[in-house]
Nucleic acid binder design. Structure first.
Length: 600
RNA sequence: GCUUUGGUAGCUCAGUUGGAUAGAGUGUCUGGCUACGAACCAGAAGGUCGGGGGUUCGAAUCCUCCCCAGAGCGCCA
């Protein structure tokens, strides 16, 4: 577990900067009030304040902020929760920014904050721009996010797409939260599958020379290799014709994997994903790096020769007890020990993976994240065990699994099949719906829940489609700014920064400001749990608040953003609208989606 | 059999890491455009949070045992 300290600065000590995270600051205010209560004896010493929270109450009618302090402290302090709450309430109301503090329910303390506190949010957003909400949570710690890592044997398909979008958004989120992020792709170019690739390309090469070829079981018959076969012909001519594998396999393998990685890179690029590092599995072989990683484990007494028990209940028919070199992963939380060497003396696939993660640890990352498809779920425990052992428990590894994507067309499920030609690639999806829609939709579900992707619904323009709904809100703000210009009201951000925000005193406007104030807090909770989908849901809610306020302008003209003949009021209201657009742009930026200036 | 991820409104899903009367969209019902997009908004109805037990001031959330579904389970990566 990582120790996530929040710097304990106080409201007073934070005067130089505008309030960034109101919830954190309110909590700090509460804690310092509690400190004074300890100092004057109304609370005993030595209490832990860790469990005390300051959160928006679920029901807005309860107030702006709620704290559970009194209930958390009641038992250890040996006092009644409501008594503690009453005392705390009188302390807190001494601060000018706290208008009222009411005790409710079993001991909740509901605070109401002065309108200025909320109005400042808009001003902070306008000053900081899309950096508003950037958090110090990461404290510059180095984190490595590994994702996609598809075998270099073909184009990326929909399953990879979800992993790519998720990993990329997660990386951006962590960056926004103050981590130093490395985006990394592990190329599985060391195993038998790249030999299969090479043989398949060789067949296409023969075909390019006019030969009739058949693709036997265990080769890749996909059309995408035709061009690679031709490129090989262009490169080597007829040099490999009528030659045995020993003459060409190595070269063709390297040539083919390079070609596949070019393909994959361009697929990723179409989605807007740019990796920092492509790490080759092959580079681990013959360089002593696998041996070094395993030696490290051996030095820790975690490598031994042994025989595994067959899995209970589902015994493979050809099961034979075998002595293998095993990693004692059970000492680090796994269920059974795992083989690192095959009985024929070759490495299992696990061995280079250990070496790869050993390398990540040695590169000095403070934290590792792997994004796997759900079909690799069985791999989680052993990988965590390996990193735990290799780093002596000092480097946490979080593994996020992305569940399957179920495809729909016209509301009907749509099966992928290579043979039937309905194999859906990343490129197919991006070409049909665009990278922005693809990315947003892929993030409208938790990573560990299955995702329905309907080619028709994602392009629909309605509230049912969150992509559209959020973009629409952003476009509406752009529209307001345009219209303001036409009405002769200056509405550039620099002017808006000087607007008199005290004019934003309507409940509906304050409600929107409150929603904006949640953004920094949301960034932190999303980053803490490595869950970028929270950003997508927040943006949807923020857009909903905005559309609501907009429509109230139909009946209540004083809520319209542009007030004819009143530049000062208009500017205050447009400042609010711009703040919404900025936060939407920042959120979409994390998701890798371009904000729309107008709807088509 | 074991591991792992899910099970929340008719349907599709959130749920701020243990907080107050569990929320959205969609569907059903009702209402709203003489403003920059009604491509929108407001309201109503709809729940044994898969089931039982436990932990405590307090549980959809934590522990435990069951039920159902997906993914995986030594020499493929």
């Amino acid at each position: 577990m990582i120790d996530w300290h929040c710097p304990r600065d106080t409201w007073g000590a934070n005067k130089d900067t505008r309030p960034m995270n109101l919830f954190a600051e309110t909590r700090t205010l509460i804690l310092s009030a509690l400190d004074t209560m300890v100092a004057d004896g109304s609370l005993p010493e030595g209490l832990s304040f860790d469990a005390i929270t300051a959160e928006p109450p679920r029901d807005a009618a309860h107030g702006d902020m709620a704290t559970n302090a009194a209930m958390v402290l009641a038992k250890p302090a040996g006092q009644k929760p409501r008594d503690i709450a009453e005392t705390l309430a009188t302390r807190l109301t001494q601060d000018a920014r706290v208008i009222s503090a009411e005790v409710a329910g079993p001991g909740f303390l509901n605070l109401r904050l002065a309108p200025e506190v909320w109005q400042q949010i808009a001003s902070a957003v306008l000053s900081d721009g899309t950096d508003f909400g950037r958090a110090a949570l990461g404290q510059g710690k180095k984190v490595n996010v590994e994702y996609v890592s598809a075998n270099p044997t073909g184009p990326l398909h929909v399953g990879h797409t979800r992993g790519a979008v998720f990993g990329d958004a997660l990386a951006s989120l962590l960056d926004f939260a103050g981590f130093e992020v490395t985006r990394e792709y592990y190329i599985n170019d060391g195993g038998a599958q790249v030999d299969v690739l090479a043989r398949s390309v060789y067949l296409r090469y023969l075909e390019a020379h006019g030969q009739e070829v058949a693709f036997p079981e265990g080769t890749y018959p996909g059309d995408y290799l035709i061009a690679v076969g031709e490129a090989l012909k262009a490169k080597v001519g007829d040099a490999y014709l009528d030659k045995g594998e020993q003459y060409w396999l190595e070269d063709v393998r390297a040539f083919s994997t390079d070609a596949m990685m070019d393909l994959i890179r361009s697929d990723l690029s179409a989605l807007g994903v740019e990796m920092d590092v492509f790490y080759s599995e092959k580079s681990l072989y013959g360089t002593g790096r696998i041996e070094a990683a395993l030696q490290d484990l051996k030095d820790k007494g975690l490598i031994y020769e042994g025989v595994l028990e067959p899995p209970k209940g589902k015994k493979p028919e050809d099961w034979e007890p075998r002595e293998q070199t095993l990693f004692k992963s059970t000492e680090h939380g796994d269920d059974v020990d795992r083989p690192v060497m095959k009985s024929d003396g070759g490495w299992t696939y696990f061995a280079p993976d250990i070496a790869y993660h050993y390398d990540k640890v040695q590169r000095g990352f403070d934290m590792l994240i792997d994004v796997f498809g759900a079909d690799h779920g069985g791999y989680v425990k052993r990988m965590k065990a390996a990193v735990s052992a290799l780093s002596g428990g000092s480097v946490p590894l979080d593994i996020k699994l992305t569940q399957l994507v179920k495809l729909f067309k016209n509301g009907a499920p749509f099966k992928m099949s290579k043979r039937a030609g309905t194999f859906v690639t990343l490129r197919d999806v991006v070409d049909q719906v665009g990278p922005d829609v693809t990315r947003f939709v892929m993030l409208t579900r938790k990573n560990d829940a299955m995702l329905d992707f309907d080619f028709d619904k994602v392009l629909e323009q309605s509230r049912e489609n969150p992509v559209f709904y959020v973009q629409y809100a952003h476009a509406r703000v752009a529209s307001v700014v345009r219209k303001a210009g036409e009405a002769g009201i200056a509405a550039d951000d620099a002017t808006l920064r000087g607007a008199d925000l005290s004019k934003l005193d309507h409940d509906a406007e304050l409600a929107l400001l409150r929603k904006l104030a949640e953004w920094p807090r949301l960034v932190e909770t999303a980053a803490r749990s490595n869950e970028p989908h929270r950003v997508a849901f927040y943006l949807y809610e923020l857009a909903g608040e905005f559309h609501g306020l907009w429509n109230r302008g139909n009946d209540e003209t004083q809520l319209r953003f542009i007030q004819e003949g009143d530049a000062a009021t208009s500017q205050a209201k447009i400042a609010l609208a711009r703040a919404v657009a900025i936060v939407i742009a920042a959120g979409l930026g994390i998701l890798g989606v371009t904000p729309a200036q107008q709807m088509r």
